[in-house]
Design a protein around this nucleic acid. Structure first.
Lengths: 251, 251
DNA sequence: CGATTCCTTGAAGGTTGTCAACGTTGGTGG
DNA sequence: CCACCAACGTTGACAACCTTCAAGGAATCG
């Protein structure tokens, strides 16, 4: 049914939508924020959509006082606020992790009507939301089924892949502006244990994180850690039928 | 800036979009699936969007053989496949947890063009994607910062809230068609430990899960478990400045 | 040079996973 | 109808992983 032509047409339409969205803020002055500032607070209504031109940011949720979970990390080129525009009060906040330059895509909720009137823009926005969802799904799977070293490895590789895709990452080395406390809040661990995992990575010559700069030594082993390494030997289950093995969640 | 008028207009537009989307499948015959069938497989391309009329389903990711993480659970009234339409090969699969009735919203990728041409439909689809993202964010926060009983409590309350919103849940009692193994895969635990938590809930007269039927006895305590209960006494941190306490992720 | 934040490390303890076994249930075929 | 089998629930003992707590060091900033 779906011929390659449709893929091409969809891709072209998405690119057009991105261009149209970008024209919205090319005449507006960008905003700059210092490290640690809140972008989408509970006070100001959340009807703002930002384009993150430079710097990192994170979206987090406060459970009780002094206990926060980082839900997502935004890198340069990401769009912030798409998931929160629809609701009057955001349940999460967005904070800059570094100095940050943002462009305002829309400022008030009624601008959504203009935005979604254009088909290519609407397609592009849905595409952005879908991509974000996919990223979060990977994160959920990693957090819920990998141990600490697997989670750290997944995070390091995810940042690396996203940076490589958009910016020019020369080699296996990039700037990672998260404190270990923030990494812990992102991965569902404690800062102490993140530190231990990083130390083991350093000792095993897999990767090292010094002064907020990550260097990957052994990409292959890092990738293996990020996948599920709980299966080291497969000798015992050799006589299982393939059906029970493949869909073991049921039947 | 954003007056109440815009909220009203947005709400009206969203309702219109939902109606328009529903008309797409009101003339198509629904599909029925048995329990444990795959809906969005890797073999058939993922260009399908379903509306889940009846039954439960789940989206899961396979790490290695026999190790699966359930990323999301779909309830009647949910739309399935919105996050995966854009990509040629889906990284996750969707499986029915019960017998299921689904309506086909779109069958092939090029139908997206029609869909997004209409502004109200485009708005509604973006709203659906945003709602899904919010739900996942809550899930991430719960998994990464709550212990086992907190996660189970969060899940039970989430299902209860979603069912109450759409269907007619008489009281604090609903059908929960997940096996304990699946609950574990959803919450990042093991089946054995889920069992222990459920037993403690039963013994403490908080809630009970028997024959896939959940009964909530003590809604208040369940809610307290779902929030962060790591703060039992707040006597020690009394002299902290409020600033360091509120934004402890930084500064 | 305090003061603060962040990194680092060790010891102790708790929560959770692993493994094994058994009981129950429901479905299937003899 | 019964026997068998598979899937699910249940439980206990033990180990592993991770957290908690505490303390100290390094770096940055006023």
């Amino acid at each position: 049914m779906t011929t390659p032509n449709h893929h091409v047409a969809l891709r072209a339409e998405l690119l057009l939508g991105r261009r149209k969205l970008n024209t919205r803020f090319h005449n507006l002055p960008p905003r700059t924020l210092k490290r640690g500032e809140l972008m989408v607070t509970a006070t100001s209504s959340a009807d703002v959509i930002y384009y993150l031109s430079a710097g990192w940011a994170c979206q987090f949720r406060e459970f009780a006082a002094s206990d926060q979970a980082i839900v997502d990390v935004y890198l340069p080129g990401d769009v912030i606020g798409l998931d929160a525009v629809w609701w009057p009060l955001p349940s999460e906040k967005v904070m800059s992790l570094t100095s940050v330059v943002v462009e305002v895509v829309i400022e008030a909720k009624h601008a959504l009507f203009d935005l979604m009137t254009c088909r290519s823009t609407a397609l592009y926005i849905a595409w952005l939301l879908g991509e974000r969802q996919r990223r979060t799904n990977r994160h959920v799977a990693a957090i819920s089924s990998l141990d600490a070293s697997g989670r750290v490895a997944t995070m390091l590789l995810d940042f690396h892949r996203r940076l490589s895709r958009s910016e020019l990452i020369t080699s296996s080395m990039y700037n990672l502006p998260l404190t270990q406390t923030q990494i812990a809040a992102y991965l569902g661990l404690t800062a102490a244990h993140v530190n231990r995992v990083l130390r083991s990575f350093r000792q095993e010559r897999i990767a090292t994180l010094e002064n907020y700069c990550l260097t990957i030594f052994d990409l292959e082993r890092l990738t293996r850690l990020a996948e599920d390494d709980s299966i080291t030997s497969l000798g015992e289950g050799l006589f299982d039928e393939p059906t029970t093995r493949i869909v073991s969640l049921m039947k």
